[in-house]
């Protein structure tokens, strides 16, 4: 690789994103944060848990909290089906699962391809979106997992 090419890659890095479906939209999360993708399994509800927590699952002996992504994103509830998946993600010090309608693929995006979205409105949900990208003739909405919950909420998850 020439110096010029190396410089170009450094300035405009290529990132990989795991894409999943919720409602009619396609979302993407950074592949570095994804540990694994599970088929839907029974989720044990936790009494007294906040509404956005669906419950817990046993992942090879470890308890993992599963978040209701639809509720978190302000979307209506839906039935689970064969396509439903639990994506196990790792944030700063937490491992949690997010329930999604389906997992699609891994896409490669250049940093320059990502556009910011208009920051209209005051809702917290709007902050979840890191940017958008036009890929394969559809809009990919990139999610910032760190902002999916506040620090207090992340701390609260530790109690489960």
């Amino acid at each position: 690789m020439s110096t010029y090419e190396a410089k170009g890659v450094a300035e405009d890095p290529v990132l990989q994103w795991v894409t999943f479906r919720l409602d009619n939209e396609t979302y993407g999360i950074n592949v570095m944060q994804v540990q694994e993708v599970l088929r839907y399994t029974e989720i044990a509800p936790v009494p007294g848990a906040p509404p956005y927590v669906l419950g817990i699952i046993n992942l090879r002996g470890n308890v993992v909290t599963v978040i209701d992504t639809r509720l978190r994103f302000g979307l209506s509830e839906t039935e689970t089906n064969d396509q439903t998946r639990i994506v196990i993600i790792e944030t700063e010090n937490q491992v949690v699962g997010i329930l999604v309608d389906a997992v699609a693929e891994v896409v490669y995006l250049r940093q320059s391809e990502i556009e910011t979205t208009p920051n209209v409105g005051n809702e917290e949900t709007a902050k979840f979106i890191q940017g958008v990208c036009h890929k394969n003739e559809e809009l990919l909405i990139l999610v910032d997992l760190e902002k999916m919950m506040s620090d207090e909420e992340w701390a609260e998850l530790n109690d489960f």
Partner: peptide, 25 residues
């Protein structure tokens, strides 16, 4: 075709519409 909905936006913001490989709000 359908308009892509972006979560957490105010009611007057319908979403993003893809036209000629670019998205319009």
């Amino acid at each position: 075709h359908e308009t892509n909905q972006l979560i957490g936006r105010p009611d007057w913001f319908i979403g993003a519409y893809i036209e000629n490989e670019q998205h319009l709000y």
